Computed example of a mutant assay.
Amino acid sequence: MSFCTRCGRPLAEGETCSCSTAFTNPPQNNYPQQPQYNGCGGQPYPQGYPQAPYGQPPYPQYVQPPYAQQKKSDGWVIALVIGIVLLLALIAAAILVPAMLGYTHKSRLSSIRSQANVLRKAAETSMIEIDEEGSNVKGIYIISSDEKDNVAVPFDIDDFNTRLDRYFEGAEKYKYFIVVNNGYVEYAALSESWTKKTEMIGTWPVGTDDKPREYSKDGSSVFSDKKTNLDNLYWEAYDQIFG
């Protein structure tokens, strides 16, 4: 006995199973063909599936965008510039400050020397007036801003001081003394202090650099130590005249 190779039914000799006929001509379904959708519930694509976003290969190579480079700090440059500026400022100060101090010192010295000359001229003018009025101006003597240090003055000292104040505006400011010989001022010295060695001294005739000139009876140029004071100059003059 034979069997159907499809359904396994036993067949009589020479019999053909009806299932073979059914599989040979399968029935056609009458269902309508479903349209192709674009995957999003929309209408079908006009030409099948969409194209790739970059078109046909070869596709462009992907390049990673460069990251923004971190800006380097300029702090060290600023610090270097500031250091150079400070160094130049220190060098300039080292040069200019001593020069300015020297200029200030010379300016003060020149001013006080000028005042000594003004004192000398004012004293001579006062003695000319006294002489013209008949007072005696002969002899050698010392006139001082400190009354107790006036020595051998032959005329009224109060009258002289009144006239001197009129011609010398610094009479109240400065300490001074003058050496007079027959109405002519041979020497004048003044300062703002009798005893301070730090105070500048102006003399006529003038000294050299910052060393004041001492009085010399014979007219020689003698320069005192720069650390001297007005009181020392007075007693040196006194000793030469009356010593």
Rank of each mutant, 00 (worst) to 15 (best):
K211G: 09
L233S: 00
F23M: 01
E15F: 12
T208S: 11
P44T: 08
E192C: 00
Q56C: 02
K175G: 00
S221F: 05
F3L: 10
V185D: 00
C17E: 00
Q240N: 14
L230H: 02
S18Y: 07
F155S: 01
G102I: 04
A94E: 03
A79G: 13
V222K: 13
G41K: 09
T21I: 11
V77F: 08
F3Y: 13
S220P: 11
N150L: 05
P98D: 04
K72M: 06
W204C: 04
P212V: 12
A68E: 14
T24D: 03
N150T: 06
S110A: 14
E133C: 08
Q51F: 05
C19V: 04
V151Y: 12
K211P: 04
D158R: 14
A22V: 13
F177Y: 15
Q70W: 10
L88M: 14
W194H: 10
L119D: 01
G207N: 02
S107P: 04
F23H: 01
Q51N: 07
D210A: 15
G102Q: 10
L190S: 03
D131M: 09
P58A: 09
I112E: 01
T24L: 01
L233H: 02
Y49F: 14
L109P: 06
I157K: 05
R213M: 15
P10T: 15
P212K: 04
L233C: 03
L90Q: 00
S20Q: 06
L80D: 09
D149N: 15
M1A: 13
G170E: 04
G170K: 04
T203P: 05
A152T: 13
E172H: 01
L109R: 08
D74P: 13
G8N: 10
G170R: 06
Q34M: 12
I78T: 11
A92V: 12
A116M: 05
V81D: 07
S73F: 07
P212R: 03
Y59G: 12
C19R: 09
P66D: 09
D74W: 08
Y234N: 08
P98K: 13
V81Y: 09
P53H: 08
Y215R: 08
Y45H: 09
A22Y: 11
K197E: 06
Q240C: 06
S144I: 03
S145C: 04
G243V: 08
W76G: 10
T125F: 11
S114K: 10
F168K: 04
D218H: 13
L87P: 03
K196C: 01
Y141H: 09
D225A: 09
R108H: 07
F242Y: 15
Y215F: 15
P46I: 10
S145G: 06
V118L: 10
S18V: 04
K148Y: 03
E214K: 15
F242W: 14
T198R: 15
E199M: 07
V180S: 00
P154N: 04
P53L: 13
A93R: 11
N25D: 01
Y141L: 02
A188D: 01
L11V: 00
F160Q: 00
Q51G: 08
L230P: 03
Q51K: 05
E186H: 09
Q36L: 11
V85F: 15
V63E: 14
S144V: 07
N30M: 08
D165Y: 01
W76H: 10
G42L: 13
C4L: 01
G75M: 11
Y31A: 12
A189F: 07
P10E: 15
G202L: 00
P35V: 03
G55H: 03
